[in-house]
């Protein structure tokens, strides 16, 4: 393979961000634009001050030129995240968040923090949520099995982070277990 070693194991975070940029998001445009056809579809027309629904990458582009305000998705608010954080710390499972919440929230916080209420609080909450979830996926390592792995509730960035060594670890376990159909009970003795 011609790919460098570091790219073989999984997708890189910037690539995930690129993929997440296809997600649609509401903006309040400050410029007028006719309906325009892109490869992924036709977006617009933009008629201020009416809201328009465009992919994140268009929103980012316009925002950086100060030609729109981004309307943050409803989950990107202090109340919602506070609620998820308390669920995250009280329940053993992963709480439901948008699959690409890490990527989208980072992009919006980076370029459009002035469109958010209380961006610093949101940043802290996101960080707390991330840490709470990380400690759960760390516990998951001890339950690693050679044949199956449940990832319910994990989001794309988290899956991507654990992918390389989970795959390798499961591979090794498969090899170490003599008869994968009838594995011996590992918890005995």
């Amino acid at each position: 393979m011609a790919l460098p070693q570091s790219l073989r194991t999984s997708v890189t975070p910037p690539e995930l961000e690129l993929i997440a940029s296809e997600q649609l998001i509401d903006i309040v445009p400050l410029v007028t634009m006719e309906k325009t056809a892109f490869i992924s579809g036709a977006y617009g027309p933009l008629r201020p001050p009416a809201k328009a629904r465009v992919p994140l990458w268009i929103a980012v582009n316009l925002k950086l030129k100060k030609k729109c305000h981004i309307v943050p998705p409803e989950w990107l608010s202090v109340e919602f995240l506070q609620d998820r954080l308390s669920r995250e710390t009280s329940n053993p499972g992963f709480s439901q968040l948008p699959f690409q919440f890490a990527e989208i929230s980072k992009v919006i916080l980076d370029i459009a923090s002035d469109d958010l209420e209380n961006p610093d609080k949101i940043r802290t909450l996101l960080k707390d949520i991330r840490e709470a979830r990380q400690s759960k996926s760390r516990e998951g390592i001890t339950k690693l099995d050679h044949s199956e792995l449940g990832l319910s509730g994990l989001c794309s960035m988290e899956i991507n982070e654990i992918r390389p060594f989970f795959i390798k670890g499961m591979n090794v376990l498969t090899k170490l277990i003599r008869d994968p159909e009838h594995p011996p009970n590992l918890d005995e003795t």
Binding site: R138, T142, F165, I177, R178, P184, L186
Partner: peptide
């Protein structure tokens, strides 16, 4: 079977520390 269990158990228990 015993050996395989030994290997797998050791691997799994050390994995957390490795990561």
């Amino acid at each position: 079977d015993l050996m395989s269990a030994l290997l797998a158990r050791t691997f799994r228990q050390r994995l957390l520390e490795v990561v």
